[in-house]
């Protein structure tokens, strides 16, 4: 899993590297454009283009029929029935490519969440570090210690919350750079990246995780924790990132979907795709 995650993440890092100093909107637009292209080509390959064209023509024909014979109840009803049937067929044709697309889309969304879901800490800013333990471990009995690399300070003693099997700390970023937190217990340890940037776009991996494959796929930014570790999550609560648009903050997911749809429709002719 780690190799797969590293490969996909590497691809995105490479892709977004040129846009990091620009507005996050530009980076997001580029990704939307590329994923739009990807989706269109998947759609063209995976869907029955002829079938879709035929069904859409049939719907158009029946609509015409409705207009022409609007005084004839029998014809109208029949035409409406046929439109409904054609629509179902259309949905059926579209279903297969959608099913194929869902996998890459999810992977892309997971990657985008790392880039656009949170923003890096700014120098001087504080954040919460949360460590969750596996069932059977008590946060009070497990001797967890948190250390920080230069440029980062651990500001509080551990706050151990038995009820949630959780240990929290507060850290403060001192200067920009990719910093590191080291969590130690018994004779083991785990390291976690902490990104401190002033303004630039950066990948922010909020958590390091273990336990199951889905959680690992959904946290691709860092190597997973060893599967026997008592720690299941090692997380930094970064501030949420909102994309500014005329004074309002837009969630990246909304921005991404709107951009993808607009760009997808704009380029469907270029790809000769019937949607």
């Amino acid at each position: 899993m780690n190799v797969f995650n590293a490969a996909v993440s590497g691809l995105f890092d490479l892709l977004l590297a040129p846009f990091r100093s620009l507005s996050p909107w530009i980076a997001l637009a580029v990704v939307s454009l590329l994923t739009g292209f990807l989706m269109l080509s998947i759609y063209r390959r995976a869907s029955n283009q002829d079938g879709i064209r035929r069904v859409k023509n049939r719907i158009k024909a029946h609509l015409l029929e409705l207009r022409l014979f609007k005084n004839d109840l029998g014809v109208s009803l029949r035409a409406q029935g046929s439109i409904l049937a054609a629509n179902l067929k259309y949905i059926g044709y579209a279903f297969k490519p959608l099913l194929v697309m869902i996998v890459p889309v999810l992977l892309i969304l997971i990657q985008l969440n790392d880039w656009f879901g949170s923003r890096p800490l700014r120098a001087g800013e504080q954040a919460l570090v949360k460590v969750r333990l596996a069932e059977g471990y008590s946060p009070i009995e497990t001797d967890l210690r948190l250390e920080a690399s230069a440029g980062l300070v651990v500001e509080t003693p551990p706050l151990r919350i038995e009820e949630d099997r959780e240990v929290d700390w507060r850290i403060r970023a001192e200067s920009p750079g990719v910093r590191e937190l080291i969590l130690r217990w018994a004779d083991q340890s785990a390291a976690k990246k902490v990104v401190v940037e002033d303004g630039r776009l950066a990948r922010v991996s909020t958590a390091k995780v273990r336990t199951n494959i889905w959680r690992e796929i959904s946290h691709p930014g860092e190597k997973s924790l060893p599967s026997d570790s008592p720690v299941t999550t090692f997380e930094v609560r970064y501030p949420e990132r909102r994309l500014g648009l005329f004074g309002i903050g837009v969630h990246w997911l909304v921005a991404y979907f709107v951009l993808s749809i607009i760009l997808g429709f704009a380029f469907k002719g270029v790809f000769k795709v019937t949607l």
Partner: peptide, 9 residues
């Protein structure tokens, strides 16, 4: 609150 340390969330 932590049972021993003087911190609270």
């Amino acid at each position: 609150i932590d049972p021993i340390h003087p911190v609270a969330r």
